[in-house]
Write a protein that binds this DNA or RNA. Structure first.
Lengths: 351, 351
DNA sequence: CTGAAAGCGCTTACAG
DNA sequence: CTGAAAGCGCTTACAG
């Protein structure tokens, strides 16, 4: 029995099957060229020897590595949103369906990191990249396009021209759904706890909130500060305490779960019950949202789908799969996971 | 200017430098064999052409892929402990310091997944593996050892003979530290909320707790049930309500943060204040532990260090780095992160 | 349909 | 110290 290390080659398979190396190669790469009985003999030999083509030899010859580059960023300590674990898994699994694997590397953020991408390309180590952790004014899409390198980004270009292919979450649509959900429960004073202007993601989410409010005839009310749970707590606290001019909101839509956890804390500080006295909705559906005593309603991103679609787009670019005749972008809707923080309905405070 | 795609080769570098291909190769792999001025000329040419050796060609020749295999498991939905994000980053970064990259793949759990490992080996796609998500009776260490494949596991073998190299967290030491911390705060009735017997990790942690109690003259009191926050809530609730025979504990040490979040909820259910009325300690230092209103004391695993040490051990096995003359195992201590859930001290309830 | 030839880009003994 | 030769394992035209 051949062990994985036994090192069957095209040559040894050919000998066993009584054909030439090329015929074995043809069975692998162009089976229709080989007569059925010959093919059968070769396939038997392959099975018997547990033969697998040497990846390096194949890559050297075809100039295709069947490797997709993915840059892992250091997870910030205390990051609540372990989205990339799931994303990377989905990417890896989808890639495997087409004989591709994922090559991980690290790189500094910004322009300084481009060298690492260049090095992998110079080494012909990868055929293309899946980009994550995209930021406003990310230099990578432009640079990769310049170099003619296939890539797909998780996250659209938020500034400048819209370069390259991407898959992203429709944050605006998610926030619209959150507002509609709260409106249906009877809420009429729904405030938004957001980030400062200028973050693409945050601006997108607040836009969805505002649009929904206007469509439903509600007054949008947006407060902003740099993210963080303590910030959310402070912003929510100020809203709940009121400022004399405006009545406090009965529902808080938060740009992230992180802010929402702060908002929940602000409720607790004041003896208010989430869902009963004031509704709270977050974004990301982080793991802590489902904990007993938290039970936060939140928008869940379709991460697995984003991973799959990213790979499909990239393999289309590489000519490995039929490119679907679709657009260069895919915007996927998050889904609202309703938990106790927005139940039961608060009785409408205004007729 | 050479673009990454321009495809400088050993040949083109040799032409520019006016030497033969072999000399260029020597500059790269055995610079001491080349005369200084020749070397300089070659290095200039390399820089000018932005030359990088083709990885496939090099691998084909040397039979070393400079790739480490890592299997990504699907993250269970709602998993609170995004440890692998950090682990993978540390592994990738450490590997890069020695010219290695990480190749990601997926595989079913258990014996069924061994095929994927075998396939990568047959393809000569990787030189070895870093194993994570190790479980009791994991078939991988034994199988890889049989095949003579280099690997290092994050997590020791909990059953059967202790096979291969591993790096792990000293859960027992962590729990001992937790008990000592609580004892120093004045607690004398410290209970442990654990998992059912038979999980290596859980047994290790409870052992550390028990040992510390006995050493400090405290009565160990262990309750167990399948993990989960709701379970922790129920177990903690029963302890806090007392059973007539024993006074309720003043501190709860939990086998995981997940259980601890449930315990915190049990406190809240009874109007008890964490840290003031009853202390709670978890394990994993999950991101939610630092949220306002949670503030859970917990044991933090030195994940980055585990990743680095795993890579170093593996590269030692591969002969890439000097193998430190140490043992085949490394047991690293977690560190206690003290937060409000174990502060301020509860006055000792018994003299 | 099948097989002999060339070559992908590198490294490793081995002569000179 | 430097260079000519062989070969890693594959695929791709191209003859037969």
């Amino acid at each position: 029995m051949a062990t994985p290390e036994s090192g069957a080659t095209l040559e040894s398979v050919a000998t066993v099957a009584g054909v030439s190396r090329q015929t074995v190669s043809n069975v692998l790469n162009a089976p229709e060229r080989v007569a059925p009985e010959t093919r059968q003999r070769v396939e038997d030999a392959i099975r018997e020897l547990r033969y697998r083509p040497n990846r390096s030899a194949r890559s050297l010859r075809t100039r295709i590595s069947r490797l997709v580059g993915y840059c892992v960023q250091p997870t910030p300590a205390g990051n609540l949103n372990p989205v990339l674990d799931r994303f990377v898994h989905a990417v890896t699994e989808s890639a495997a369906e087409h004989g591709f694997h994922v090559l991980l590397f690290t790189a500094p953020a910004g322009t300084a990191g481009l060298d690492r991408y260049a090095e992998l390309l110079a080494q012909r180590a990868v055929d293309g990249f899946v980009l994550a952790d995209t930021v406003v004014a990310d230099p990578r899409p432009g640079w990769l396009t310049e170099q003619g390198v296939p890539f797909v980004a998780f996250g659209r270009s938020w500034s400048g021209p819209d370069i390259g292919r991407w898959v992203d979450v429709d944050g605006a649509a998610g926030m619209t759904e959150a507002v509609e959900h709260l409106h249906a429960l009877g809420h009429r004073r729904i405030a938004f706890i957001g980030w400062p202007e200028g973050s693409g993601v945050g601006d997108d989410r607040v836009a969805g909130y505002t649009a929904a409010c206007l469509r439903l005839g509600l007054d949008p009310r947006v407060v902003r500060a740099e993210g963080g749970a303590e910030t959310g707590r402070a912003l929510a606290g100020a809203l709940l305490d009121g400022d004399g001019a405006q009545e406090p909101p009965t529902a808080l839509v938060c740009v992230s779960d992180e802010s929402a956890y702060g908002a929940l804390r602000a409720l607790a500080d004041r003896g208010l019950r989430p869902g009963e006295d004031v509704a709270v909705v977050g974004f990301d559906d982080t793991p802590a949202a489902r904990l007993p005593g938290v039970d936060l309603t939140s928008l869940s991103q379709p991460i697995e789908q984003i991973g799959r679609e990213s790979v499909l787009m990239l393999l289309g670019l590489l000519g490995v799969v039929e490119t679907p005749p679709g657009p260069e972008h895919r915007l996927l809707r998050p889904s609202l996971v309703v938990r106790a923080s927005s139940r039961p309905a608060v009785p409408p405070t205004e007729a």
